[in-house]
């Protein structure tokens, strides 16, 4: 169990790290949304899940799983809200056809 929990923590941390590197390396706002919306959601879910496994079946681990559910609902929603706000305020995406935007 400890091994499973440790693995989940490390892999989850890896995804969060990848998300952060993505935010630093990707060229524009819309691309960065991808790094934020995906890697972070899975990473945080894995890390909290790992802590829950470490804790065993208890009220605490149930609460942790509730946080996982909440994060996996709230994170994509926040990503979408940011993206929609950007589109509506007229931010242009940098694309392969139009790299100067």
């Amino acid at each position: 169990m400890t091994v499973v929990a440790g693995l989940m923590l490390v892999v989850g941390f890896g995804f969060v790290l990848a998300g952060v590197i993505g935010i630093l390396r990707l060229p524009d706002f819309y691309c960065r949304l991808h790094a934020m919306g995906k890697c972070d959601t899975l990473g945080v879910a894995l890390m909290l899940g790992g802590v829950a496994v470490l804790e065993g079946l208890s009220l605490t681990s149930l609460k942790l799983l509730l946080v996982v559910v909440f994060v996996s609902l709230a994170n994509p929603t926040a990503t979408h809200a940011l993206g929609r706000a950007a589109v509506r305020s007229g931010l242009r995406a940098r694309t392969t056809e139009d790299p100067g935007a």
Binding site: G14, A18, I21, H34, A35, K38, C39, T41, L42
Partner: peptide, 11 residues
């Protein structure tokens, strides 16, 4: 799969 792909791309 999506997370793995984004992780692969940024790394």
């Amino acid at each position: 799969v999506a997370s793995l792909e984004v992780a692969y791309i940024v790394l």
